[in-house]
Nucleic acid binder design. Sequence first.
DNA 1: ATTTCCTTGCGAAAATTTTTTTCACAATAT
DNA 2: ATATTGTGAAAAAAATTTTCGCAAGGAAAT
Lengths: 252, 252
Amino acid sequence: MKRDRIEEIAELLDKRGKLTLEQLDDYFPHVSQMTLRRDLFQLEQEGRIIRVRGGAMSVKEVQKVSGEPYTKKTAIHTDEKIKIAQKAARLIDENTSLFIDGGTTAMYLAKELPDLNVHIFTNGLAVAIELAQKKNVNLTVLGGQVLKENLSTASPVAKSYFDNTNFELAIISASAFTLSNGFSCGSQVEADLLKLTRKKARAMYMMLDSSKIGKIMPYTFARLEDIDVLITDDNFPADLKEKFTSRNIVIM
Amino acid sequence: MKRDRIEEIAELLDKRGKLTLEQLDDYFPHVSQMTLRRDLFQLEQEGRIIRVRGGAMSVKEVQKVSGEPYTKKTAIHTDEKIKIAQKAARLIDENTSLFIDGGTTAMYLAKELPDLNVHIFTNGLAVAIELAQKKNVNLTVLGGQVLKENLSTASPVAKSYFDNTNFELAIISASAFTLSNGFSCGSQVEADLLKLTRKKARAMYMMLDSSKIGKIMPYTFARLEDIDVLITDDNFPADLKEKFTSRNIVIM
DNA sequence: ATTTCCTTGCGAAAATTTTTTTCACAATAT
DNA sequence: ATATTGTGAAAAAAATTTTCGCAAGGAAAT
């Protein structure tokens, strides 16, 4: 029905922030652009979105922080990251406790996550703001020096948070991966934090879009064998897949 | 010059919320629509406005509209808060170290703050994201449980951050103030954190818009005599002013 | 000091894109 | 049976972007 579609559009816009008509058309191939246009018009009337040239944006999105360098970064490989985030979101069970890192993929995960009763630890500011919207999510932010490139925090003091806390699962992402150098990132303290996370968590899920493969960043924080599940996209090379599966790592 | 005109457009948009190109053309008859278009484009790049078909609207305007528990709160008394934040921003010197709290007024302060070489500690997520935009600001976020109403963190562990750090100045705000109950807020841990801040900081500046006066919240974290400077708006009652000035508290 | 070159800001018109309007038709409700 | 609602296609109307050209101001070179 019409209302369903409109609600779906609204939801989509809240998640994605901004969509062009063409993107919407991809999501709703069975209706015409004209219909989508009219839906957008109605949502605008309801004050939930703002129509901009070419499409529309969510009011919520605008309310978030504006104009930052960070959002620019989120623009690349968006679709893959969202797909990966959706896969990851399905793996999270109610009444668990988990760690999510501060990367952009993690932010999409935060958006996609249903409003479950879970306890989440994160070192990502953007992740935290997304999760703070969910009523049932209990949320703890690890403090520390803020890394401006990815809006995440890292600090040796974060250890003290971990002393008295536990979590079953850590879902993290890496900036780079090669077989010989493992999973790496660009900051020393971040790497330390992630290593520590590896120790605390019973299981570790890695979100890695295929564009990261073959790249190397300065600080390795995990090796292939450290992870339990790899969540990636369809472009992940088949030969590499084998290396993971032969070590009993599940690929999703 | 160009920059002047752009600023004027931004100001105009903040005041009027939304303007069409024709309206803008009326305001600036000496330049072409094309030029105004380009100005709007630039302002959009800066994240200060959103271009919509026919013209543009101020981001601030959009923020006032709707939704979230948090953003709703930012909508009220916006103008006063911004003015107070502007006053506070002028009081911050380069090469200092300071604490800013996590309230909405603090977020406006973060927005208004020039890109100075300072070190800032904050327990506010929205504050942190704003500050992360500034290249020269060195930023540390205090971690902890996230309070969803105001997107700030609070945790006993935050103490450990303070152990090895120093700051001269704390600029904070309160949810409520009365003479007999002092400055109060709605969360125990937050109150604890602010008390601790009071001890660490050499000086304490309080941002308080006059709507907070006469209200009482559960947890008092400071009394009148604990603060050094009060930053408020024009509606601050004269009789109360006297109580502050008689204790050598500067009112701005 | 003058000239040259480059950058920046601006406007006009063309080209493009998006949006709105209009009309028609089918499905559903009254 | 007659309205009403939702929809799509195509035409019409804007609005926006692009392209080109020009002029003013500064910097660098002569």
